[in-house]
Amino acid sequence: MRHRSLAYRRGIDLGIRLISSLAALFGIAMLSWILGTVMLKGGPAINWEFFTELPAPPGMPGGGLANAILGTLLITLLAVVLGVPIGLAAGVWLAEFGQQSKTAETVRFAANLLMGTPSIIIGVFVYVVMVMTTGQFSGSAGAVALAIIMLPVVARTSEDILALVPSALREAALALGVPRWKATVGVVFRAAKTGLLTGTLLAIARVSGETAPLLFTALNSPYWPESFNEPTANLTVTIFNYAMSPYDDWQTLAWGASLLIAASVLGTTIITRGFLWYRSRQS
């Protein structure tokens, strides 16, 4: 090994320390820059009208995004109703029945593949399956796309959480003559309640900021959402459309919607993460 003077080695070490501290600072600075921008530009757009009124026609001042807010809530709700039970069931099978079998490995592999699939591809898939066949963009197609994105996330997190429940609990229940399904739903679920809830919340937070899978499924609409069988207004596609428009009012609304989306997604993430951290410290 080459011999180097101590001063040289200390110098290199100091340099690297400096660089890595600056890099961490850079990351935090970028986060603050992005969040600061969203707050500064989105803040002025948030007012009573923003939550209660329909968008104004182009060029007209005022208006709000009440329809898009409601649409996003409805689409996300339907996605949760479709995606969470199936994902949970898949997680139960992996943790309780499949375990280390070949089939279970295949399911896990498929879930990982699905998690790594770009969300725009899910959009294309749902377009071909639901929009092309019905000839109609629809809120339900958007919800299905979001549900497909949630599905593998819920399956894998719930498997991990259920696997943590001590098997003594299951065995105790089974020894009392409780059928397997009841032991799972009544005992294992109850023991894993908070974990399952936070896992689901994180999955919901993740999909509620998604845009790409809604672009050509739910599309967008300037009207109130009336049925899931027609294009449905939603916040994220509205941001995309309005940001690309030449109207200042619309761009302001897009910033307001960005603030709303960012605040709800980050808020949910921080609260659930903080809660998990708090719990892990208690036990």
Binding site: L31, L35, A205, T236, I239, F240, S258, I261, V265, L266
Partner: peptide
């Protein structure tokens, strides 16, 4: 956790 559309804006 920041949605990609926010990065876009």
């Amino acid at each position: 956790a920041i949605p990609s559309i926010i990065y876009g804006m």
